[in-house]
């Protein structure tokens, strides 16, 4: 479950579990988190939590709400965001429990309108009958699903070292082409085309179209992907080129 850590001047004051659908922050005593400080408005901000996601909303406070130094009205909270109200800081922590629910990891589940609990894999109880799936409104804070959702998609996969193709003959001889993209196609469309795929563990060349297959170091490839080694010489559509890693 996500939580907020309230601190001032680096001193941790409180840890707040985000277990309510709507949690309010303000100076007045009826707030879920009361901060008795004149810089905080009576009703300053609210945090709305829907299953595993939380949103921060500034309730038109006098002195405003900052997230990571930027003033916000409404904000979708991400792990480690720092919310500032006056001198107070609230750090949003929503890390996926690593081991817990590894089995359920990111399984697709059905969610029902009306805040019913998402059907868990292995749920023995049959689903309630007669619930028509209508366009749903945000469900009431339902028991959070136990499936550990995944962290955001990994950015570009840890890529292989930078590599270059240098043309060895033809009008553009000497020209270099950096293989920065996931895929780089080489050759003449309609005649012969090959593609070099940049993968986490290296660069792979594959035939795409044409009657002739690429030649690497004098040997003709088959339809399978072939991993390129440093200083391999590739021939496509009559053009020779050298593959090498940049140091």
């Amino acid at each position: 479950m996500a939580k907020m850590i309230l601190s001032m001047d680096g001193l941790v004051l409180k840890e707040i579990q985000l277990n309510k659908e709507r949690l309010t922050i303000g100076r007045k005593p009826h707030n879920d988190i009361q901060i008795d400080n004149l810089a905080i408005s009576g009703e300053h901000a609210a945090i709305v939590t829907i299953l595993n996601d939380s949103f921060l909303e500034d309730l038109n406070s006098t002195n405003g709400t900052l997230v990571n130094g930027q003033p916000v009205k409404k904000h979708f909270l991400k792990n480690n965001d720092v919310v500032e109200l006056g001198k107070y800081k609230l750090k949003y922590i929503n890390d996926v429990p690593a081991a817990a629910g590894a089995a359920d990891f990111e399984k697709t589940m059905i969610i029902r309108p009306g805040g019913a609990k998402p059907v868990q894999p292995g749920d023995a109880a049959p689903p309630p009958v007669g619930v028509t799936p209508a366009p749903m409104t945000p469900p009431a804070a339902s028991p959070a699903s136990h499936a550990a959702p995944m962290p955001p998609p990994a950015a570009a996969p840890a890529a292989a070292n930078a590599a270059v193709i240098q043309l060895l003959n033809g009008p553009n001889a000497g020209k270099e082409l950096e293989l920065t993209k996931t895929l780089t196609t080489l050759g003449k469309p309609g005649v012969q085309v090959a593609v070099i795929a940049r993968r986490p563990h290296g660069y792979f060349i594959t035939h795409v179209e044409g009657a002739h297959f690429p030649v690497v170091n004098g040997a003709t490839l088959d339809a399978q992907a072939h991993q390129l080694e440093d200083h391999d010489v590739v021939e496509i559509a009559g053009v020779k080129m050298e593959f090498f890693f940049k140091t």
């Binding site: 299953l51 996601d53 990111e106 689903p127 959702p149 955001p152």
Partner: peptide, 30 residues
């Protein structure tokens, strides 16, 4: 549905922890 209702932008949705929840499926209701 959150994107449609303006609660969350398509960009923010990439970071959502609620990716795996579908609102309709075959075989779960009559």
């Amino acid at each position: 549905e959150q994107i449609d209702s303006g609660m969350i932008t398509a960009e923010e949705a990439k970071y959502s922890q609620n990716k795996n929840l579908v609102t309709r499926a075959l075989g779960v209701d009559p």
